[in-house]
Structures are given as structure tokens and as C-alpha cells.
């Protein structure tokens, strides 16, 4: 029984470590809805994995990445406002995924655990996958840190100064896709954005530099995972929502700090 809790904690911490720096960029670049859209599309990824009998992790990464690139292209056309476009793609891809799963009666899918996470069922293989992907995501973020920061402040200025903005943007999308693929198991499709945005917003009030904010956000995310799992363990609440609730609670506490 204790290894259930151990694996759950390890998995949660592995995911929360990435949410710090990644979530900070999502907040700075005002991409919360963008992240949400990609997260919703992961349901489509899961449906595809079931249909093709392949690894859902891989399928989710690929689908998220494709959708991210489609979004970037469509945003550049500027025929629709960005949030309208995101609203269309977000819910359409979620709906396709749900309908596709319903059309496959031979597979039994626990929809609730997809939508809200199922942290207490992770096994050692899940933990290994999560850490392998986390390490790749963090290494990529470290490598891209400076150009990404320059682009966040002013994309055209960064481009004139020699930042390969298209390559960096694509790599950033890949990191989001990687994180969604591993966070799905922990907090579920519908709550991934919360795990990205809330710790970063909480960390803002304690940070003087971008790096501080990223590290604090990771620590706050880890704290929320531990508190949420405790709640889940002792008062038998669902793990994913409990983690998000704890993150929200930490954010409320941070509001008490005077600026």
C-alpha cells in the first residue's frame, strides 16, 4: 500500500518540477488558454492511441504538437481572433476524442480518470516515463531559457538580434506537449492548465527575477502535490482535484503578502 503513495508522490513531484519554469512562460506569454486547448486535444491523442494500439504518451505528444503547429499557422493568418480560434479547436478536439472513444465499444475507458487524473494508480513504469520526459523537458527549457525570455519581452527585437524565433517557438510547443503527456496522469486533462498557471502566479509575488519565479513556482507546485496527496490519503478525496485545490489555497495565502 505504501508504494502506491510513494509512486504517486514521485510522479506528482516529477510533473510539478517542470510546471514551474514552463508555467512561468505560459503566464508571461499569456498562453493559458493555448495550453488549455492543447490539453483538451490530448483526449484525441488517447483515442488515437486506443485505435492504433500504441502508447498513449507518444500519441498525446504527437497530437499536441501537431495541433500547436496548426494553431500557430492559423494565428498568423489573423482571420479570427486568437481566443475564438482557440475556443473552436479546444472544444472540437475534445469532442472528437470523446466521440471517437464512444465509437470503440470494445475498449473500456475510464473517462473520469482521463479528465481529472488518476494519480493513485501510477506504477513504477509510469514513474520512469514521467522522469525521463521531465528531464528532457527541463534540459530543453534550460537550453532555450535566454532566447525564450528575449522573445517573451519582444519577439521582433529578439529576431533582429539573431534569435531563431520559429525554431524556439516550435521547441517551446514541444515542451508543452511533453508536459501535457505526463501531467495527464496526475491531474487529468481538464486541470493541467491549473497546475501550470497557479503555482507560477503564486510565485510572482515572491520573485525579483524570472529565474526565481520559475524555481519558486516549481517548489510551490511540489508543495501542492504533497498537500493534495495528503488530503487524498487521509480524507479520501480525488488526488488530481485535491492537488489543484491546494495550489489554489497556496495562491490565496500568497495574496496576503503585501507588495
Amino acid at each position: 500500500m505504501i508504494d502506491v503513495l510513494l509512486y504517486a508522490t514521485l510522479a506528482g513531484l516529477g510533473v510539478a518540477a517542470v510546471t514551474g519554469p514552463l508555467g512561468s512562460f505560459i503566464v508571461w506569454r499569456r498562453m493559458a488558454y493555448f495550453g488549455d486547448t492543447l490539453a483538451h486535444s490530448s483526449i484525441l491523442g488517447v483515442a488515437l492511441a486506443l485505435f492504433l494500439s500504441i502508447s498513449p504518451t507518444l500519441s498525446v505528444i504527437v497530437i499536441c504538437l501537431i495541433l500547436a503547429l496548426v494553431l500557430v499557422v492559423l494565428q498568423q493568418q489573423k482571420t479570427l481572433a486568437s481566443d475564438t480560434l482557440l475556443g473552436i479547436l479546444s472544444h472540437t478536439s475534445l469532442a472528437i476524442g470523446l466521440v471517437a472513444m464512444a465509437l470503440m465499444p470494445e475498449v473500456k475507458v475510464d473517462l473520469l480518470s482521463l479528465l481529472f487524473g488518476d494519480l493513485l494508480t501510477v506504477n513504477i513504469n509510469d514513474v520512469i516515463t514521467i522522469y525521463a520526459i521531465s528531464v528532457v523537458a527541463i534540459l530543453l527549457l534550460l537550453k532555450l531559457w535566454k532566447p525564450l525570455l528575449a522573445m517573451t519581452i519582444h519577439e521582433e527585437l529578439a529576431k533582429v538580434e539573431g534569435v531563431p524565433v520559429n525554431a524556439v517557438r516550435t521547441a517551446f510547443m514541444l515542451i508543452i506537449a511533453l508536459e501535457i503527456a505526463i501531467a495527464m496522469k496526475v491531474v487529468g486533462v481538464l486541470l493541467i492548465t491549473a497546475l501550470l498557471v497557479i503555482p507560477a502566479a503564486t510565485a510572482r509575488r515572491f520573485s525579483q527575477t524570472p529565474e526565481q519565479m520559475a524555481v519558486f513556482a516549481s517548489l510551490i507546485g511540489c508543495l501542492a502535490v504533497i498537500l493534495g496527496l495528503c488530503a487524498s490519503w487521509f480524507i479520501d478525496t480525488p488526488a488530481g482535484p485535491s492537488i489543484v485545490l491546494c495550489a489554489g489555497f497556496l495562491f490565496l495565502i500568497s495574496l496576503m503578502k503585501k507588495n
Binding site: W28, K146, L149, I153, V160, A200, R204, Q208, T209, P210
Partner: peptide
């Protein structure tokens, strides 16, 4: 070697960045 001064900066208030840090990007 181009030094470019764009029209405007829109920096989200959540980004903790000082003037020095901004200059250090260059």
C-alpha cells in the same frame, strides 16, 4: 550590425524583469 528600437514593449506585469536584466539580454 543593426541596433533596433521597436515602437513599444508590452511586457506582462507578471514577468519580474529589471532594466538591468532587460539590457543583459543584449
Amino acid at each position: 550590425r543593426i541596433g533596433y528600437m521597436p515602437q513599444k514593449l508590452h511586457i506582462d506585469p507578471t514577468l519580474p524583469v529589471t532594466l538591468q536584466r532587460f539590457l543583459k539580454l543584449a
